[in-house]
């Protein structure tokens, strides 16, 4: 794409870069603040005096964090959940998106399934009945209670289905002539050219599993089994509700702002690492280009 650049092109480059860098800076600030707090003196943090740079740099919170066995246990539970949960999400999403991407002539019951799924996406019976179902299936306190109830991410199914729709039928017809089965067509033809879409919904699943704290709270009876975000959620305590001196110890143990910040920073590192890794699947022109040729 070598072109002689015009003045207008330079100007638009400058504008684009300025806007992007400004937005990036804006998004970097809160994280910067968290990192600074985690390295600061704890009273300075409590006094709300830490901005973008740490005050009296020290590593105490990270030292304490290393000793916090439950934090790391929860961390590993979250990792396990992300791996298993995302795998199951992707498998089911792919399997459902393919038939749904067909029209009613090709797959008669398509619209019925679709409406049922939209209904399931929007309506819910609330948490008590779901809790009772999970409990009566014997899933309480197991990793499966965090994975199975959300096994079908309907939003992702709809996204992938729309992506599959954009793949021309001609590609499939040749394979049908060769007598390939539906599954084979899906896995051998559709998936290889859908990597950017799969990377996107895969990322959504990973993030969804990593960020969710509520199902951990609901389905885990032993706090030793909490996933990371459920553990971190416990750091928010409303001090104004405390009226009894016996609760003082509890506040003292959670109001350690610097340690809390360190926990949050460490909890973000995995998602910080996973994104660049997935980005390599966002290669331009991969999809439709290969189809059209």
């Amino acid at each position: 794409m070598i072109k002689s650049k015009t003045f207008g092109s330079y100007l638009s480059d400058i504008i684009i870069w300025t806007v992007l860098l400004l937005l990036t800076a804006l998004c970097f600030l809160p994280l910067m603040n968290m990192v600074s707090v985690s390295f600061s003196d704890s009273t300075a943090a409590q006094a709300n005096q830490v901005g973008l740079l740490p005050v009296n740099v020290n590593f105490n919170s990270y030292r304490l964090l290393l000793e916090d066995a439950q934090f790391w246990r929860s961390f590993m539970i979250s990792v396990e959940r992300v791996v298993l949960g995302t795998a199951l999400n992707l498998l089911l999403t792919v399997l459902m998106a393919y038939p749904l991407s067909k029209n009613t002539k090709q797959f008669g019951a398509r619209n019925i399934y679709m409406n049922v799924m939209i209904f399931a996406m929007l309506f819910s019976g609330g948490m008590i009945p779901l809790f009772i179902v999970v409990k009566s299936l014997g899933l309480m306190d197991t990793i499966w209670s965090l994975i199975l109830p959300g096994a079908v991410p309907i939003f992702n199914v709809i996204l992938l289905m729309n992506f599959f729709k954009s793949i021309p039928d001609s590609l499939e017809e040749a394979a049908i002539m060769d007598g390939a089965s539906k599954l084979k067509i899906l896995f051998k033809i559709y998936l290889p050219i859908s990597l950017p879409a799969l990377a996107t919904i895969g990322l959504f699943s990973i993030v969804g599993h990593w960020n969710d704290y509520f199902s951990g709270l609901l389905y885990m009876n032993s706090s030793a089994n909490f996933p990371l975000q459920t553990y971190i959620q416990q750091l928010n305590v409303d001090v104004t509700k405390i009226t009894d001196p016996s609760q003082l110890k509890a506040i003292a143990s959670v109001s350690n702002k610097t340690l809390n910040a360190a926990k949050i920073v460490v909890s973000i590192i995995p998602v910080l690492l996973i994104y660049p890794f997935l980005q390599k699947y966002f290669t331009s022109g991969l999809v439709i280009g290969s189809v059209k040729e």
Partner: peptide, 24 residues
């Protein structure tokens, strides 16, 4: 033996009402 463990406040109350609702 802990039937359930949860932080004092909303999380604990949540667990209690789930226990009550599921009759356990």
């Amino acid at each position: 033996k802990d039937k359930f463990e949860a932080q004092t406040g909303d999380p604990y109350d949540q667990k209690v009402s789930m226990a009550v609702a599921s009759g356990d």
